[in-house]
Design a protein around this nucleic acid. Sequence first.
DNA 1: AGATGATGCGAGCGAAAACTCGTATTTAAG
DNA 2: CTTAAATACGAGTTTTCGCTCGCATCATCT
Lengths: 217, 217
Amino acid sequence: MVGNSRPDRPASPRPAPRKRPRQARSRALVDAILDATARVLVRDGYAALTTNAVATMAGVSIGSLYQYFPNRDALVLALRERHSRQMHALIVAQMAGEEPGLAIMIARTIRAAMQAHRLEPALHKVLATEAAHLETHHEKDETEGLLHALLERYALGAHAVVTVPDLRVATFVVGRMAHALIHAAVIDPPPGVDPDLLEGETVRAVMAYLTAGRDAA
Amino acid sequence: MVGNSRPDRPASPRPAPRKRPRQARSRALVDAILDATARVLVRDGYAALTTNAVATMAGVSIGSLYQYFPNRDALVLALRERHSRQMHALIVAQMAGEEPGLAIMIARTIRAAMQAHRLEPALHKVLATEAAHLETHHEKDETEGLLHALLERYALGAHAVVTVPDLRVATFVVGRMAHALIHAAVIDPPPGVDPDLLEGETVRAVMAYLTAGRDAA
DNA sequence: AGATGATGCGAGCGAAAACTCGTATTTAAG
DNA sequence: CTTAAATACGAGTTTTCGCTCGCATCATCT
């Protein structure tokens, strides 16, 4: 029995797991493969991402690639995980320090998320538009959890998250709104508009929603 | 010369155009093919959308399919165009009538867009997540154009679009914000939350942004 | 009816690409 | 140094899938 049994486009079935790299040599190889995946993805898109192309780009043999990745999508999944970890780390780093008022905290959070998006914009764009179907959105759930906790802290204090009736709804609205604006501002901005202005407007939008109705009807 | 010359994943090059259906018979066939495309897409996803699968599902021959569609992506493109037309028509119909105040107009617009998204949610979701890379975003530009005109009308009148410094920026922010919220509310809503509430919150969010700063600093 | 064009059919060709497996090389352990 | 495990290699096998092409059928016109 030579050859394979699942030659194209699995897209989900999470098939054979592979061995993990133990020695330094193989860890470097896996990194090289992920780098190559990113380069091919950015340069030619998901449709052109073949296992052979990645192996060639990485300068390793196709056999070596299959030692650690069961199929094409595993490459993209692993790459996205690595990318998410990097973004997450940057956000956490940016947000260190004491907790000031709500407005400052929102501004700081949005700024951090924006800078995280600017880490590898091209890669982020391809992953978002061409790999959206590869599920595993721990990232999103994780982020929403953090946001929920943040809002909760400010909703109960002497601060001003008043008009929002349900915290879960507020988390949903703020999360989606902020993410859409940040993502669009970095990945697909309107021509001839200052990026910093967009950051400010995003903060304004979120704050306006959270504190709306406090005074004017 | 049998066989082909472009065997897999064109993904863009907009190849050979095909004949248009002239008789009623062939028009029905094209419709059947598009319906089948939608069904396969919703049931198995873009990765499983093969021309043979579509032809089989539609109950027509693969040869007939290629009479009217040059390749796989042409199917998806045509389907998306049809879907967009339906949504657009529904929105226009819902928004007929005189123009009341800004708040009412925003609410009406958002309600219309939300109902349009509810037309074929499953199909809309697949198209958005798995066919995002197939460009041709006339829809988006078109919608943004309408929104810009709408905001312009209200920014100059005696109404209240005050704090927004740049109309282009406002269009960008409102467009992205509203679309993200509407899309998420219909396609991927938080569990156990009233959809109507989400609609109201979307309106609140947009209004809050547009009229923020009128009174409170 | 006959002629002409539009439409419909589907077996089969060709090529891309996923994936395996036997072998060679490197590293670590004893 | 010997041995074994881990790692690396890549030519070749297999399968899927896009797409063509020659022929059959149907519609329309004169």
